[in-house]
Design a protein around this nucleic acid. Sequence first.
DNA 1: AAGACGAAAGTGGTTGA
DNA 2: TCAACAACTTTCGTCTT
Length: 327
Amino acid sequence: MPTKTHKKTRARKKTTSKPKKKPDIAPSSHCPECGSQNLMRDYERGEIICRDCGLVITENIADYGPEWRSFDAEQKNKRARGGSPTTLMRPNKGLVTEIDQYNRDIRGGRIDARQQAQLHRMRKWHKRVSIASSFEKNLAIALAELDRVGSALGLPDNVKEAAALMYRKAVKQELIRGRLIESVVAAVIYAICRMYGIPRTLDEISRASSIEKKEIGRAYRFLKREMSMDIPLTDPSTYVPKFASALNLTPKVQEEAVKIIKKALRKGLISGRGPTGVAAAAIYIAAAMHGERKTQKEVAEIAGVTEVTIRNRYRELKKELKLKINL
DNA sequence: AAGACGAAAGTGGTTGA
DNA sequence: TCAACAACTTTCGTCTT
């Protein structure tokens, strides 16, 4: 059983190598326990860790984390630390008791061979036991997935934390049963992105997580209902900068597009329309107004809608806002 | 020839009985 | 569970530049 899971996580790591963190890994060192070179620096806890067996190889490397300051009592409560700030991204929130690797007694003296062997076994079992409950096991898988997908989507850490918190709640409410962990994770990410106004479509999340769009949507609606979240409908203008930069349009065009959307919003003619379609049409119009014309096809491709949809939105916007556009 | 336009039919999902 | 429905897509013929 351990070998099976072992192989699985390893295989997954390979396919999703993150170029970002590569330089952090000391290239020449390897794990003294299992010989693996798959090491990871964890600045939050100040350790170098073997990704394969979990052995802590070096402790007390420099902490690159923020030095918190507090401005009121509540913050102080949250941020005061004896150790690193807690993080929801780890199954145990980063609060752990570890048996260290140095085979010394409390005064730093040597320990005899038999006791060293015992210590070794204790370390091993301590690690295993600490992720024993199904709750923790579930979280361990989910949070790894969350981190992977979150990174693939370029989400900042605070957003990933928020997603982790929501996932914890979902597990506590037993909303995962009968569902793939991965699909719930994807749904949570989608929900958080919408709450934070981060433009990520179901399509993108689907691509990053290899879960079908349909499935993510279903899980999302389920969570939304069961956890009674109220999520505002997506403001199309959140997609404007994303599309505009993908099309190499100037900031002027972006402003114009946002203005158009604002106007349309006030007239209440966005309701029920897909936000990406509206954003695409607004950009198409704005680009034409500023002489940076793009074809419908180009815009459609970036926005993930068809030309026809752009035309329909475009027609509505033009009529309702009485825009003067000369082609 | 490429792009824009719009009609018509098809698709997948939601809603309400 | 089913039918009605809205939004969107696909396809295709026509018009414009």
